[in-house]
Structure formats: structure tokens, C-alpha cells
């Protein structure tokens, strides 16, 4: 089957019911997409399929046929806001151990500029983080999506 992965058309010879997650990690060497639970609960395996966030552990390879898949490795090239998100997650403490971070960033990617805290929470509701308590993640996304507001934290200190 033909899949466009991070902007490149690829021909993949894979069983249709394999998890997209395994195809990305094992066949494509894209190990930035993580597995935390295998049941669509933690969101660490989030990728975009035709611009829509999905848990790649719950997507059969067949469903990627003819689609455009973007993983964390291709995020910066695919969408301008990705770079800002990546920068902000480092700057504002949104990434600690980092295992949830690719999924968080992919889930935040469809958000529009200047999204509200509630919209951010809704977009990230399917992603679990155990390190941060989420607040620094919200602040990171806010800082990336509202560059004018440059993070409450910088002001505070």
C-alpha cells in the first residue's frame, strides 16, 4: 500500500491489521511515536492522519492507505506551529521525562492560534502525563499558540 509519511510517499508491504504504531516504529524506524498502554488511553502514540489526531495503537495499517500520516519526526516540516510548540515545551517545563511529549505535541498541533485554556484541555484530554501535573503543558501550548503573551512564567520571576 502507499502511504504518505511525513511528506514522503512510501510503499509499504504490511499486513492490513497491524497497528499503525508498529508499522511506524518497526518498519519506518520512526521511534518518536511512543507506546504507553496499547488501548487508546494514554495518547503517547498520537499521530496525525490527514490532519486529524488519532491513537496509532488503535489504527489498522490498512486505514493509513492513501492517507497522509505525520509523526513527531515530521511535525516541524508539516506545520508551522510545531516548531513553536517544541520550543515552548522545553522553555516552559512542558517536557520532563519526555515519553508523553511527542503525543502531547501531536495532539496540540490541530489547535488554532490563541486557543483558550479550555480548548487546550479538550484537545489534550486523551493524553496522559505523570510528571508535570499538566499545568506546564498548558502553559507551553499557550505560549506557542499565543506568541504575544510569551508565557506568564517569564513575567513572574
Amino acid at each position: 500500500m502507499i502511504v504518505t509519511i511525513n511528506g514522503k510517499r512510501r510503499r509499504l508491504d504490511v499486513a492490513p491489521m497491524r497497528r499503525l504504531l508498529d508499522v511506524l516504529r518497526e518498519d519506518c524506524g520512526l521511534t518518536g511515536t511512543k507506546e504507553g498502554c496499547g488501548e487508546g488511553e494514554c495518547g503517547a502514540c498520537t499521530v496525525l492522519m490527514d490532519g486529524v489526531a488519532v491513537d496509532s495503537c488503535l489504527v489498522p495499517a490498512a486505514h493509513a492507505e492513501g492517507r497522509a500520516v505525520v509523526t513527531i519526526e515530521g511535525a516541524a516540516a508539516a506545520k508551522r506551529s510545531a516548531r513553536a510548540l517544541q520550543h515552548a515545551f522545553v522553555e516552559h517545563g512542558g517536557a520532563q521525562c519526555g515519553i508523553c511529549t511527542p503525543g502531547m505535541i501531536m495532539a496540540a498541533l490541530p489547535l488554532k492560534a490563541r486557543s483558550s485554556r479550555d480548548q487546550i484541555k479538550t484537545a489534550l484530554a486523551g493524553n496522559l502525563c505523570r510528571c508535570t501535573g499538566y499545568i506546564a503543558i498548558f502553559q507551553s501550548v499557550e505560549a506557542a499558540l499565543s506568541p504575544a503573551r510569551k508565557g506568564a512564567r517569564a513575567r513572574r520571576r
Binding site: 521511534t31 509523526t71 519526526e73 517544541q86 515545551f89 517536557a95 519526555g98 515519553i99 520571576r157
Partner: peptide, 21 residues
Amino acid sequence: TSVRRMDGDDKVTGAAKYVDD
């Protein structure tokens, strides 16, 4: 001061290698 954390860039780009990687 909150200097830029050393492992940050690898973690946000997917480059960081965890054991299953």
C-alpha cells in the same frame, strides 16, 4: 535561573532514544 534543559530538544523532536527505541 531557568536555563534551557539539556535533554529538551531531543525529547520534543522524537530524537531521544528510550530503551524500546
